[in-house]
């Protein structure tokens, strides 16, 4: 019974650290990584289909490096190297460098998902649009991409859930998100198990809500056609 009383007591005393700071920073980092990942990921997917060999090569190299190394390592490199390249970052908190690394990381994965989605759309769709005299751009935007996005929504949702969980690695640099909140409160209270359970429940709640949201979006898109 002590266990649950402890949890209750911790929540009463440290709810701000968990709910405001912890969830706040986790959501902030996830949103930045997801939005940036979706934006740059789409650009990278288009770059991969471009005729410019150099552009293609650069993007492919980024994707391979990002996929082939652990996120934690990328975070370390980001936090120590970015401030050397961009001096402004050295006077800012670590969270800026962390956010940039997460954006790059998620862009690489999203670009692969989008590329596979575009390639899965029947080539006849593009041909039909072009045969009517539509430009490549219009055909891509109004015919191919909408179908591609519908097909990749489950994979994209998975990636977004992964991003939410990957933000926990940022606690290595004590940036204030949920896992940092855990480290802090554990330090104050020495109640490791209780703090882990609280943080676990919160992470689960976040990703569960996100996955339900994505499911309903998928259903709405399935309803059409």
């Amino acid at each position: 019974m002590d266990f649950f009383t402890n949890i209750a007591n911790i929540m009463v005393k440290y709810w701000k650290t968990f709910l405001l700071q912890g969830i706040g920073y986790t959501l902030l980092l996830s949103l930045i990584a997801v939005a940036g990942g979706a934006f740059f990921g789409s650009l990278m997917a288009l770059a991969k289909r471009s005729k410019l060999k150099i552009l293609k090569g650069i993007v492919n190299a980024i994707v391979e490096v990002v996929r082939g190394t652990p996120v934690l390592l990328q975070l370390y490199i980001g936090v120590f190297v970015f401030p050397m390249i961009v001096p402004v970052l050295s006077s800012l908190p670590y969270i800026y460098s962390v956010a940039i690394v997460l954006i790059i990381n998620s862009s690489a994965y999203v670009s692969e998902i989008i590329r596979s989605g575009i390639e899965a759309v029947d080539i006849g769709q593009m041909e039909a649009a072009r045969s009517l005299g539509l430009t490549q751009r219009t055909a891509m935007l109004s015919i191919v991409l909408p179908q591609a996005i519908k097909n990749i929504l489950p994979a994209l949702g998975n990636e977004f859930i992964m991003v939410v969980k990957e933000t926990s690695l940022a606690s290595t640099f004590f940036v204030g998100e949920l896992m940092t909140a855990y480290l802090k409160v554990k330090g104050y209270t020495y109640l490791t198990m209780e703090c882990l359970v609280i943080v676990g429940v919160l992470y689960f709640a976040l990703t569960f809500i996100l996955s339900k949201l994505l499911k309903s979006m998928e259903r709405r898109m399935k309803a059409r056609a």
Partner: peptide
């Protein structure tokens, strides 16, 4: 694209826009 606008094309596999 201007040239293509003057030519209608019908495909073996229809290729109607699914979306």
């Amino acid at each position: 694209n201007l040239g293509r606008q003057k030519m209608g094309m019908v495909f073996q596999s229809f290729n109607l826009f699914n979306n």
